[in-house]
């Protein structure tokens, strides 16, 4: 089964990398960029037939390693 885990910074957490990217986009002249927050995407293949089980396992992975829940939120999407 293929899945995607998206990790993003919680709101209120300063994201200097996002800010730098935001500045670069503006200097490239890309119009209308209001703000940028940088996150991470993990594409994971998991050997599990049951969707719910796969999702539970990936949530565990996110809690234990992929995200630092002090500063980050995560979202698990099992794509089948």
């Amino acid at each position: 089964m293929k899945a995607r885990v998206i990790v993003t910074l919680k709101s209120g957490i300063l994201d200097p990398q996002g800010k730098a990217i935001e500045g670069a986009l503006r200097s490239l002249g890309i119009a209308g960029v209001v703000s940028v927050r940088q996150g991470k995407v993990f594409d994971i293949e998991i050997a599990e037939g049951d969707r719910a089980v796969a999702e539970a396992r990936l949530k565990e992975a996110a809690e234990k390693l992929l995200a630092n829940t002090v500063i980050e939120n995560y979202d698990v999407k099992v794509m089948g």
Binding site: I13, L14, P16, Q17, A20, N68, V70, I71
Partner: peptide, 16 residues
């Protein structure tokens, strides 16, 4: 901090 033995986290330096 990552191991949970101390609270909080060390982020990128403010001026990168």
């Amino acid at each position: 901090c990552e191991a949970g033995l101390l609270p909080g986290v060390l982020m990128r330096n403010a001026r990168l």
